[in-house]
Amino acid sequence: MKIVDLFELVRLSRRLQKRPCPICRSEAGRPLLRYDRYLLPSNIKECERCGLIYCANMLSPPELERFYTSLYSALMDFKATEAQIATYQSVARERVTKISARLGHLDQLLEIGAGYGYFLAAARQAGARHLYGIEPSTSGVRHAQTSLHLGDQIVEAPFLEASPPPFAPQVTVLFHVLEHLVDPGAALDRLAAWIPEGASLVIEVPDTAADWSSMGLINFHISHASYFRAETLTDLLHRHGFAPFEVEREADGIYPGNLRVYARRDSSFSEIRPFLAPPSLASHVADLVKPWSLKNGYPRAVLRLLRHLARG
């Protein structure tokens, strides 16, 4: 991270725009946290109508796209060190093993937000022949194409602007992608147009109902536009043509409190349903977020930024 990146991060606060709940469009929400870990006024709320926790102040879609193609990589600090690569490979192999155990041999596989390509590479090693990944990051695609030899099996594009895969995907995966999207419903609608009836969808997101006390405030940042729990994610899937059939919760996955939902494409689930908010998580969030904690509050957030800057 360079000093110019830090200045750009500070300037983001002037570009934030108010928005309603991205799921039900209600503006009635319980305030949970005004500032995120980057000290941006993201205004984290819990929707009183559907229960989703979301950033009520967010970048516009074009601004968010620029954020992900430039500043986000600097903040995440992927350096392709041996330790980082080993972690990515281990997580990818574990995901292939777990998903294969539920769905059988993986093939005709589509990954949205393919990152640096490690899941696709692990699936290829496990015998998958037809692979396709979509990833908006130039550095991620370059790494996947050159270091992992994925070639034209991964393309650089924002998901909502990408072309369909060259085959009908039987398994589609999104690992920690949906929470980054300004309009997750629109993303699921686009997937529903690509995925044939009966084909599988696997989504991982951070589980807001879990114990992520080790992260505290660090859990909340502008690149997470929405914060899901099992109830809100499964309800969203029902509304956009998918039938969830299994929910897995991991205390120590890639994220403290990892939620994985398996669903099948089922157009009969796209009918309009009344919104029924699950019990509020406001007290749960308040218990886990200690904003001024030296361990996981604003002081730690500032130190993280300074460390990124020093390594830049």
Rank of each mutant, 00 (worst) to 15 (best):
I23T: 10
I23Q: 08
I23V: 15
I23N: 00
I23A: 06
C24L: 07
C24D: 06
R25L: 09
R25H: 12
S26I: 14
S26E: 08
S26T: 13
S26V: 15
E27I: 14
E27F: 00
E27L: 13
A28D: 13
A28N: 12
A28I: 10
A28M: 08
G29I: 04
G29Y: 00
G29Q: 02
G29E: 02
R30E: 15
R30P: 00
P31C: 08
L32A: 01
L32S: 03
L33I: 07
L33G: 05
R34E: 15
Y35C: 07
Y35V: 00
Y35H: 08
Y35K: 07
D36H: 03
D36M: 03
D36T: 03
D36Y: 01
D36N: 02
D36Q: 05
R37E: 04
R37T: 04
Y38P: 00
L39T: 04
L39W: 09
L40C: 03
L40R: 01
L40W: 00
L40P: 05
P41H: 09
P41L: 11
S42C: 13
N43Q: 09
N43R: 00
N43T: 11
N43W: 01
I44R: 02
K45M: 14
E46S: 09
E46C: 06
E46A: 06
E46K: 01
E46D: 11
C47N: 09
C47R: 04
C47T: 09
C47W: 01
C47M: 06
E48D: 14
E48S: 12
R49V: 15
R49S: 10
R49M: 11
C50I: 12
C50F: 10
C50W: 11
G51L: 08
G51F: 02
L52M: 09
L52R: 02
L52E: 00
I53F: 02
I53N: 04
I53T: 07
I53S: 07
I53W: 01
I53L: 07
I53V: 14
Y54N: 05
Y54T: 08
Y54H: 12
Y54Q: 07
C55M: 10
C55R: 10
C55H: 14
C55L: 13
A56Y: 08
A56H: 05
A56R: 05
A56D: 05
A56K: 05
A56W: 03
N57S: 14
N57V: 12
N57T: 14
N57R: 15
M58P: 01
M58K: 07
M58V: 15
L59E: 06
L59T: 05
S60Q: 09
S60G: 07
S60E: 13
P61Q: 09
P61M: 08
P61A: 05
P61H: 08
P62C: 10
E63L: 11
E63Q: 14
E63F: 11
E63I: 12
E63K: 13
E63W: 13
L64E: 07
L64M: 13
E65K: 11
E65G: 07
E65I: 11
E65L: 10
R66K: 05
R66S: 11
R66F: 04
F67P: 06
F67M: 09
F67S: 01
F67K: 00
Y68H: 04
Y68R: 01
T69C: 08
T69G: 11
S70G: 11
S70Q: 13
L71P: 12
L71G: 10
Y72A: 15
Y72R: 13
Y72F: 13
Y72W: 11
Y72L: 10
S73W: 09
